[in-house]
Design a protein around this nucleic acid. Sequence first.
DNA 1: CTGCAAGTTAAAGCGCACTTCAGATCAAGG
DNA 2: CCTTGATCTGAAGTGCGCTTTAACTTGCAG
Lengths: 155, 155
Amino acid sequence: MHESLTIGDLAARSGVAPSALRYYERLGLIRAGRTTGNQRRYERSELRRVSFIRIAQQVGVSLEEIREALDSLPESRTPSKGDWAQLSARWRSRLDEKIGLLTRLRDDLTGCIGCGCLSLQRCSLYNPADALAAEGAGPRILLRAPAPVPARTES
Amino acid sequence: MHESLTIGDLAARSGVAPSALRYYERLGLIRAGRTTGNQRRYERSELRRVSFIRIAQQVGVSLEEIREALDSLPESRTPSKGDWAQLSARWRSRLDEKIGLLTRLRDDLTGCIGCGCLSLQRCSLYNPADALAAEGAGPRILLRAPAPVPARTES
DNA sequence: CTGCAAGTTAAAGCGCACTTCAGATCAAGG
DNA sequence: CCTTGATCTGAAGTGCGCTTTAACTTGCAG
């Protein structure tokens, strides 16, 4: 029936557009064989990779980071359950971290702004900003560490 | 001493680059007065707005959405504690949602991939993808709310 | 064998959230 | 005063994660 999947199949089954799949391939996140006519044919195990990619993205991980993670999978053989389990374990702790961050965020928000006191100078959400002031360029994305910033601020 | 803040002051205190502050102003997220020499001078209450913006961003909210939220604050008077508290309450539930999403994500990851069964077709993480297949363009960022939003910027 | 959907490529475009640049002006300490 | 560093503007550039376009080729149902 389907030893391999066409790009359309994979797209339909993964929910990722063909153009995105080609893009992922260019970045080295997934691989594809070719027919004699140069069309892509995916092994079913690639579906797993795509799923992983989407999941990781939902957690806010860049494709580059995902690539690095996927690079830890064996290239020669089809990744085993164990291989994936290892990867998953690593991501699980990542998720735990993010969840912890968001939880702190929520509590701090409620505490700092929600209460109306708006004592932003002492807020653990707000203060990191002071520390970040000296930062380099680039978009400062989310999910920075809790930062033990001793926070000092003016009068 | 400091009835108002220069853009440099605000940048230092908020941890947001001056260029970003000007950008926020263009988008209507913050406001500034001007000196006779045309330099920006910020009221101290703007610091609060900037803090809010950064916090919201960390939760994965777009500037456009943040602008909408900030629009709910009174324009004529300096927002009161109550105004901010209302806003915060709304965001708190947002955070609750995100936390819930991530938690489900984590559990599903462990269940779907971590276990090795990899029955992705039945996975609640994986399946949404099928629904997303027909999606529009643009970078699909993380952490969007389940939102009954008619907009299609999702996932 | 034919027709047409589905696939191929490289290159360009897009939306977001900014940053960088150039060239000019402002503000304030010595 | 004068210099020096901060600030001003508009326009262009950047990086990510894709999508779109154009021009062409494949592959399979009939």
